[in-house]
């Protein structure tokens, strides 16, 4: 499933000859493709910014004078700061175990790691309600011990970790598999400790792939809506993340503010895309994708 994020390392196209379409066909196809993308992808992005600035820059800035907006931003950053490193550690461990060793049931394990990709965000949130809600499996135990998971930071973090669970692992597994174990074995033979070999051999080899996956993981963690919406409780100034804050503003007829805060997320998306493209262009050879596995 990792191909979905693949950057493209394209061999330079030779001038068209027998094995290509005519110039006219080509122009038409390019036209259709670009028009389609502009209509479907770029226009919505454009709409976010035009709506955000539709009442001028003052109205735009007003959206960020609200303390609730800042607490939403703070909460979203906090969630990302916990969820992303967690997934990095998990991704490193999982890819180490899966790529460097042979054991039975490996493909089942990979499929299970993939599972959150195809689970509906709503279901991702709901499973935690069923576990930790006061009507849920551990509900009464948690109440007795005064532990609040749902409708508080832990629940939001859990739901976010769930939806971003495969991101790092799925980038690193093919990357490490491709790199094999020869370099680590050489380091170990030369007397390096396991941890040392990991730090000086493995990590430098995968650093761009890791950065790449962190980028995508972070974008998803900050932008997740469905799963977080189920477990958040929507308490203003307390459990509202940025996407939920956008929804609230939207429901308060405060469209300019809604789109202003949304534009913050759109900018984040653009930065993610730019960094991602830079990584792909400069370090295509050190990422897992772009090559048919």
């Amino acid at each position: 499933m990792s191909e979905i994020f693949s950057p493209i390392a394209v061999p330079a196209a030779k001038p068209a000859q027998v094995a290509s379409e005519g110039a006219a066909t080509r122009a038409i196809l390019i036209g259709i493709a670009v028009a389609f993308l502009a209509l479907f992808l770029v226009l919505p992005l454009f709409a976010v910014f035009t709506q955000a600035f539709s009442k001028g820059i003052g109205a735009f800035l007003d959206a960020f004078r609200e303390p609730d907006a800042w607490s939403a931003i703070r909460l979203t950053l906090t969630v990302a700061v916990i969820a992303v490193p967690f997934n990095v550690v998990f991704g490193l461990a999982a890819s180490w175990a899966i790529a460097k060793f042979e054991f039975p049931g490996k493909s089942l394990l990979i499929t299970l790691i993939d599972l959150p990709f195809s689970v509906s965000p709503v279901v991702s949130g709901m499973i935690y309600v069923l576990l930790f809600g006061s009507q849920g499996l551990f509900g009464s135990w948690l109440i007795d011990h005064g532990i609040q998971i749902l409708f508080a930071l832990p629940g939001i973090v859990l739901a976010t970790v769930f939806v971003t669970f495969p991101f790092v692992a799925r980038e690193l597994i093919p990357l490490m598999q491709e790199q094999g174990t020869a370099e680590e074995e050489a380091a170990l033979t030369l007397g390096a400790s396991g941890l040392h070999a990991f730090r000086t051999v493995t990590l430098p080899n995968i650093r761009w792939g890791l950065l790449y996956s962190v980028l995508l993981c972070n974008a998803r963690a900050m932008g997740e809506f469905g799963a977080v919406s189920v477990v958040s409780g929507h308490i203003r100034g307390l459990t509202n993340t940025i996407p939920l804050h956008v929804e609230i503003l939207y429901n308060e007829y405060n469209f300019v503010a809604a789109f202003a805060v949304a534009s913050l997320l759109a900018v984040l998306a653009l930065i993610t895309l730019v960094l991602k493209s830079v990584l792909e262009w400069r370090f295509a050879g050190e990422l897992a994708h772009g090559r048919a596995h």
């Binding site: 006061s134 609040q148 409780g233 929507h234 203003r236 100034g237 609230i248």
Partner: peptide, 20 residues
């Protein structure tokens, strides 16, 4: 005083599930 708003049924559900 903090407030949380939404469809009345959905809000009741969050209280049932443990919103404080």
């Amino acid at each position: 005083v903090r407030a949380s708003h939404g469809g009345s049924g959905a809000q009741a559900r969050t209280v049932i599930d443990g919103v404080d």
